[in-house]
Design a protein around this nucleic acid. Structure first.
Lengths: 103, 103
DNA sequence: ACAGAATACCTCGCATAGCGTAGTATTGTG
DNA sequence: CACAATACTACGCTATGCGAGGTATTCTGT
């Protein structure tokens, strides 16, 4: 799929991936893969931005002797997901404009 | 609307603006404004890119003593619009993933 | 008559962001 | 015991939206 169209959807997908339960980098990539492919070098900066924006919390926990970072959505993050639903209206109106017939 | 979400939609909107009749810079901006705002410094590079990609043809014509550049969609451009309709399926699946309830 | 808005086009440079490539380190598997 | 998978991080390239600035003409209100 066109790279350009993915932009803006990536961040919201990452939030959506942790909306019901905390997750970690590698798992997020696997979870969203069926919908949108995301590389590690894209994901980690996104996670950092979302953390700085207060959309998620991070905690480090040991897993099989290795340190793993778990990401957990915050209320702000949930608000952002709600906001996306609003933006979707705009996206749909753009879509309708693009695919309009005869004029 | 979020800058990121606009990426990828801008180009397709410009193509959509000329899908039924040729147009020119200033008019394209006014036409797409209700759906997506686009500045001149964004539009002209897009028109150039679309021309280089063979999605549109340009012709200069005099209008009220001023030179005006008319942009006309090509078959390649129409194909691109068709392609967008396909990509929309993917976008919808992403949307459904993001707004999914309970899991 | 004249200022200012609208029309019409173009360019430069900044900031953002996706991602390829590479690096580090551990665990599981054939 | 090598290799894949897991897990995280950093550097640098490239694409792109857009603010700011530039040029020039026509229309409009006072």
């Amino acid at each position: 799929m066109d790279i350009q169209l993915k932009r803006g959807l990536l961040e919201i997908c990452v939030l959506a991936a942790i909306k019901y339960e905390e997750s970690y980098g590698y798992k997020i990539i696997k979870d969203v893969k069926p919908y949108i492919s995301i590389s590690e070098s894209t994901l980690y900066p996104i996670l950092k931005r979302l953390e700085e924006a207060g959309c998620l919390n991070v905690r480090s926990a040991e897993h099989n002797g290795r340190l793993r970072k778990y990401y957990c959505i915050t209320d702000v993050g949930r608000q952002r997901l709600g906001q996306f639903a609003d933006e979707w209206q705009e996206i749909m109106s753009i879509y309708n404009y693009v695919i309009r017939e005869g004029d």
